[in-house]
Amino acid sequence: MKYALFLGCMIPQRIPSVEIAAKKVFEKLDIEAIELQGYSCCPDSVVARLLDRKMWLTLAARNLSLAEEHGLDLLVLCNGCYETLVEANEILKHDPQTAKEIREILAKAGRKYEGKAKVKHVIEVLHDDVGVDKIKKFVKKPLKLKLAIHPGCHMFRETEGGGIWRKPKQFEEIVKATGADVVKNKIDRLCCGFPVMQVNEEFALKRNLLPKLAVYHEQGIEGVVVSCPACNVQFETGQVLLRKYGVRYNIPCLHIVELLAIAFGYPAKELALDIHRSPVQQLAQKVI
């Protein structure tokens, strides 16, 4: 298994512990991930797309062309990057007029987009290419934790004909493979509020994040697992920001690759979990 690894903006710039964990987990599972050089923001599937669709498509196509140069498919660790890159590929495949325009812009920038690279979310790679059974083999000590999963809005995006619960279900199977207990709730599809923060912070915190935290707290959840760094940042900084409204929660939130790295026995210090703004390090120390 060989992929071009697309790190995006949020992971290297806000939660590099995810970058560290991903590399360790990939090495353990024989996934060769070549870091994509010279990439730009995917660009993000909400704000950048609204700012300008042509710019959004052009930069996405350029990123895809970088992977094509290696003859590799793209592996992404972020739901937003996944949606942008998959959707850009689909638009350029099915809209010849737009594709022509974008190709011409890229040609002037010295790049060529051919639409050869596929885009895979880390959840798909772990589930379909590696397999849950193989993951189980590397779990050192089953994690006796009550966890919630937050799939994130963009994980429900599918190309035509796909089932929107395909990836969230795969996500759940992977978390369960670590030995953790996944506690179900009915607010899986509620957005964490990350994109809304840029328009109305109070609304995003109180109407998106808070209801989720309240349910998790009621269920005695010990941690929330996400597959998107933007959701991760929202759960962590959101809990800090909610204090100004008199609400105090301190629920750890971590990325799926970090959970796997913990389950595979990597020490918390080696994973730089102290970078998190929620008590992820304490959660790891509890189980290792």
Binding site: G38, S40, L51, D52, K54, M55, L57, T58, L59, R62, E104, I105, L106, K108, A109, G110, R111
Partner: peptide, 12 residues
């Protein structure tokens, strides 16, 4: 430089 050219091409 490529990113900047792409931005100019898209007239962003």
């Amino acid at each position: 430089g490529e990113v900047h050219e792409a931005m100019k091409g898209a007239e962003f």
